[in-house]
């Protein structure tokens, strides 16, 4: 019966590593954003941006390894499909972390004092949504916990984020900044807010997986 467990253990271990790498990427992203928003340090050589990039790449490699193992070996096709869908949707979040950091750096975006707190709140709310969806994934993959409650809370965060996003964009366009700066800021705000949209998309995949498994 060894054939039933060996491959599965390897996949479980790789998913754990993948989630840890996503956490690392999130931590670097948060530190990086704090520095760039609060201190306006958006130097392209910023080491933190490199760290975000590195952890995103590692997460990508791990995801590919998981996909390879899933396609080749283990689990019922239906479980395989659900896990792949969840991981692929989740993977868009570290990608977004990286994209935002690079955008801030390359476009040398400076955040005016009046928007600093709003930006930071937006980042934090989105990271909360990410943390919740990560917990929900752990709930489905490893422990029996109330996954649906977490998914529901992600939805609430997403609504809050939408409101903050609209307010912030409104403030930006009411300010005395030049049009080009306003557009750049709006793009960054939209990208940050997309993190909770992506978390919500992961939540949808998780819901499907849970409903399919209800007997």
């Amino acid at each position: 019966m060894n054939f039933l467990w060996k491959k599965e253990k390897s996949i479980i271990s790789k998913i754990e590593q993948y989630l840890q790498e996503c956490d690392t990427c999130r931590d670097h992203f948060y530190t990086c954003m704090k520095q760039m928003v609060m201190k306006n340090n958006s130097d392209p050589g910023n080491k933190l941006v490199e760290l975000v990039h590195e952890s995103e790449s590692k997460a990508d490699d791990l995801r590919r390894e998981i996909e390879y193992e899933l396609y080749n070996k283990a689990l019922i096709p239906e479980s395989r499909e659900d896990i792949l869908n969840i991981l692929e949707t989740l993977d868009a979040i570290p990608n977004m972390f990286e994209e935002i950091c690079f955008e801030m750096c390359l476009e040398k975006i400076q955040i005016s004092d009046q928007f600093k707190q709003g930006f930071l709140t937006l980042v934090e709310k989105n990271l909360h949504a990410f943390a919740l969806i990560r917990e929900a994934i752990v709930g489905l993959f490893y422990k029996k916990m109330d996954v649906m409650d977490r998914i529901h809370r992600v939805d609430q965060y997403e609504s809050e984020v939408d409101k903050i996003e609209r307010d912030l964009i409104g403030q930006v366009f009411s300010s005395k900044l030049g049009k080009a700066d306003k557009i750049l800021l709006r793009h960054i705000i939209k990208n940050i807010a997309q993190i909770s949209d992506l978390a919500q998309a992961v939540g949808d995949k998780l819901t499907i997986a849970i409903v399919k498994r209800r007997i």
């Binding site: 019966m1 039933l4 467990w5 599965e8 479980i12 689990l75 019922i76 479980s79 659900d82 896990i83 709930g139 489905l140 993959f141 490893y142 422990k143 029996k144 997986a209 498994r213 209800r214 007997i215």
Partner: peptide, 22 residues
């Protein structure tokens, strides 16, 4: 009957998959 037992068990997606494969 089996569905009731599986639903009552504190199991994750991998364990449920394993139960069905076995």
């Amino acid at each position: 009957v089996i569905g009731f037992m599986i639903n009552a068990l504190p199991i994750n997606i991998f364990t449920q998959d394993k139960i069905i494969r076995i």
